[in-house]
Simulated assay, not measured.
Amino acid sequence: MMVRPLIATAMLLLAVVAPAPPAIAAYETDAPVDFALPVLGGGEAALSDYRGKWVVVNYWATWCAPCRKEIPELSELHIEREDITVLGLAFEDTGISAFETFLAEFDVSYPILLVDVYAPPEPFGAPKVLPTTIVLNPEGLSVKAFLGPVTRQAIEDFIDGGAVGP
């Protein structure tokens, strides 16, 4: 039967012409992290704009149930702690209107940055899981990553526990 050779040929062809997935990078760094991304609603934000504060970078997507669950606590954290800034990194290949419709259901208090899923920002690259939350210290070093759902309490425990570096 000729079906198997055809399937094998088709799979080989797909492997050759399919684009490579984005690189997955390590999260903790020895040097300050900086990249700039467009902000939903206009403008651009760079991580270096927030030096002197703790920065909580949260990769999320509209289809991700745990991401949805985190939004209220991350919004409270962003509002109630002057020493912490939360940035939501929308990691999804969809249009602006889809994000706006989704966010109309949620009271998000922090900036939403738009990530090109085919060229995610370095040094983080594509997240290993969604949600992924990365904590940068006031000097801009990435010092902690939470893979999967995280609570406000876990972030505050880490920051208030005297975390200063990797």
Rank of each mutant, 00 (worst) to 15 (best):
Ala20Glu: 13
Leu141Tyr: 10
Ile24Val: 13
Ala61Met: 06
Ala8Glu: 10
Asp49Asn: 02
Leu130Phe: 10
Phe99Pro: 00
Thr29Glu: 09
Ala163Gly: 08
Asp107Lys: 11
Gly41Ile: 10
Glu28Thr: 14
Phe146Tyr: 09
Phe124His: 07
Leu103Pro: 00
Phe106Thr: 02
Gly95Arg: 15
Ile96Pro: 11
Ala36Arg: 09
Ala61Glu: 07
Thr62Lys: 08
Phe35Val: 01
Met2Cys: 13
Gly43Ala: 07
Tyr118Ala: 15
Val33Pro: 00
Leu77Cys: 01
Glu105Pro: 03
Gly43Ser: 08
His78Thr: 00
Pro121Tyr: 03
Ile79Asp: 08
Thr151Phe: 02
Leu13Arg: 01
Ile24Glu: 14
Val129Tyr: 12
Arg4Trp: 11
Phe146Gly: 00
Met1Glu: 13
Ala36Phe: 01
Asp34Tyr: 12
Ala10Phe: 15
Val17Ala: 06
Ala163Asp: 07
Gly140Ser: 05
Leu141Trp: 02
Asp116Val: 10
Pro22Thr: 06
Asp34Glu: 07
Ala36Lys: 04
Arg68Val: 01
Ala119Ser: 14
Arg51Leu: 14
Ala20Thr: 12
Leu87Gln: 07
Pro121Leu: 00
Asp49Pro: 00
Ile71Arg: 01
Phe106His: 07
Val55Ile: 12
Thr101Pro: 02
Phe91Met: 08
Ile134Leu: 07
Gly125Val: 09
Arg68Glu: 04
Val150Met: 04
Glu28His: 08
Leu147Met: 10
Pro5Gly: 13
Val117Glu: 08
Leu103Gly: 06
Ala46Arg: 15
Asp116Leu: 12
Tyr59Ile: 10
Met11Ala: 15
Val129Asp: 14
Ser109Gln: 08
Glu122Cys: 02
His78Ile: 00
Leu12Gly: 13
Leu136His: 10
Leu47Ala: 06
Ser75Lys: 04
Pro32His: 04
Tyr27Arg: 15
Pro123Ser: 04
Phe158Met: 08
Val143Ala: 05
Cys64Met: 04
Gly140Thr: 03
Glu156Met: 11
Tyr27Lys: 15
Pro120Asn: 03
Ser48Met: 07
Lys53Gln: 15
Lys69Asn: 09
Gly42Thr: 11
Ala15Asp: 06
Phe124Cys: 09
